[in-house]
């Protein structure tokens, strides 16, 4: 550990600590705040922390996408739903919706963290800032590298994901908007207005 700290430059360390702090504070407050809108904002804070960590790893493109897609679109939709369905009331955190949910969650998280630590000990993962773990392969820049691997090595996974998303969207539309030809909503409304 001391050898790792010795090789890390002070600015790198500060940026990492800032990112980690943002992530952790955000994550903890998602669980503890009572208002769903505040929880969504805490999620944004966590996502920002992750973006900072990505920048620290010289993965600029991922950092930008993290903000654009997750913070800029997905959480906005969360908030949209929270506001539109009017569920933005404070909740009583003492009530446990499913009995035994919380102890189970604690056990599972402990198992997950233990397995990550175990993997880190057994496997040969490079950790630390990019100056230590080396640049991205090829060095042609984030976008070119990512694009090349997504459209060659991982093409099947990429296309499968695209298909899955399309299916989800079509499914949502079919569920939410059923067609009923016998129903003349429009005409009855015209009569009312006239």
């Amino acid at each position: 550990m001391t050898s790792l700290l010795a090789t890390v430059a002070i600015p790198d360390l500060l940026v990492f600590l800032l990112g980690a702090l943002l992530c952790l504070v955000g994550a903890v407050s998602i669980l503890t705040v009572k208002n769903p809108v505040h929880a969504a904002l805490s999620l944004v804070m966590t996502l920002f922390g992750i973006a900072v960590l990505f920048i620290e790893l010289q993965a600029d493109f991922l950092a930008a996408v993290q903000i654009i897609v997750y913070a800029g679109a997905i959480v906005v939709l969360f908030l949209f739903v929270i506001m539109f369905l009017g569920v933005d009331r404070e909740e009583d955190l003492a009530v446990e919706p499913i009995v035994g949910q919380r102890p189970l969650a604690a056990v599972l998280i402990t198992a997950l963290m233990a397995s990550i630590v175990a993997l880190g000990l057994v496997g040969h993962f490079e950790v630390g800032p990019a100056t230590q773990t080396g640049m991205l392969h090829g060095g042609a820049g984030n976008v070119a590298d990512l694009g090349r691997s997504v459209f060659t090595t991982y093409l099947f996974a990429f296309e499968a994901t695209a298909g899955l998303l399309i299916i989800a969207v079509v499914g949502a539309v079919v569920l939410a908007r059923r067609n009923n030809p016998d129903d003349h909503v429009a005409e009855s409304q015209v009569e009312e207005l006239a």
Partner: peptide, 13 residues
Amino acid sequence: PMGILLVLACSGI
């Protein structure tokens, strides 16, 4: 290096 994406990110925020 991510230049123009920063614009999109900011308008997202």
